[in-house]
Amino acid sequence: MSHEVEIGGFKVGAGQRPFLIAGPCVIESEQLVMDTAGAIAGIATSLGLPYVFKSSFDKANRTSINSFRGPGLEKGLAVLKKVKNQFGLPVLTDVHTEEQATEAGKVVDVLQIPAFLCRQTDLLIAAAKTGKVVNVKKGQFLSPHEMGNAVKKIEECGSRNIILTERGSSFGYNNLIVDMRSFPIMRSFGYPVVFDATHSVQLPGGGGTKSGGQREFVEPLACAAAGAGVDGFFMEVHPNPDEALSDGPNMVPLHQLKSLLERVLRICDAANPKK
């Protein structure tokens, strides 16, 4: 069983009700971030759902060199700080280098290690040393058992503020699958496990110079994960995904989020009646 990890003013794992990590893939503008954060916060509050806002200041692993990456570290952290101050929300962002981890750790509550970088020892150590919660996404190329090595690297730095996230495994070219066995396997390491419902329906590189996605499968996969038992859900959400500058094909439209979460939570409550 996983133990509790504190994020902002609430605890996750160890029998707590599932929590939500959600927001636009990348910081496209301050206005978009503030509008989306406020709207999702309202939905989460109405459902009694602990909520962490997510958006990235830099998407360093875009398919094409011409793809939009974000406003950069300084401007991006300023926007995330405004979300914290205005809405009182804990915030999460990706980091790709040790220097980014150190600087972002001064502002955000959760540092996220992208799936492609989950084996980068120096990055894991730098994130752990900030004292903030570290959310490690399982690489598409790893078995869930191998995530125990990432956990051990962080623990060796004296940190127990760890979350593990499943985001699908490579299955042939430009396709991902989700192995539901990964949730109990990764939970066995003693930390909360999150399901990334939107990146799991991504078609990596499927658009040639960009990734494709099948957002119509977000709900069935999220429902399956709810039944399998997870501690939280990660969903990238946008008011108009078809116009998003990153990950549009796999993001949840904002107007569909509440009904999706209502169904997922009903399954969580049925599968785990003590939560």
Rank of each mutant, 00 (worst) to 15 (best):
V5D: 06
Q16T: 14
R17G: 06
P18A: 10
F19Y: 14
L20T: 07
I27D: 03
A39P: 02
A39S: 15
I40H: 01
A41C: 05
G42H: 04
I43Q: 01
P50W: 08
S56Y: 04
A60T: 02
I65L: 14
P71Y: 06
G76Y: 06
L80S: 12
K82M: 08
G88R: 11
D94G: 10
H96M: 06
E99A: 15
E99I: 01
Q100A: 12
V108S: 13
V108T: 13
C118I: 04
I125S: 14
T130R: 03
T130D: 00
K132G: 07
K137S: 11
F141E: 08
S143N: 13
P144V: 14
H145C: 00
H145M: 10
M147H: 05
N149D: 13
R160F: 01
N175T: 11
P184Y: 13
P184C: 14
I185Q: 13
R187S: 15
R187G: 15
Y191V: 05
V193F: 12
V193P: 12
V194I: 15
H199N: 15
L203A: 14
P204E: 09
G207M: 11
G208S: 05
G212W: 09
G213I: 11
Q214D: 15
E216T: 07
E219T: 10
L221A: 11
A222E: 02
C223G: 00
A225I: 05
A226S: 11
G227V: 03
V230L: 07
G232R: 12
D247V: 13
V252F: 02
S259R: 13
L260P: 00
I267P: 10
A270N: 06
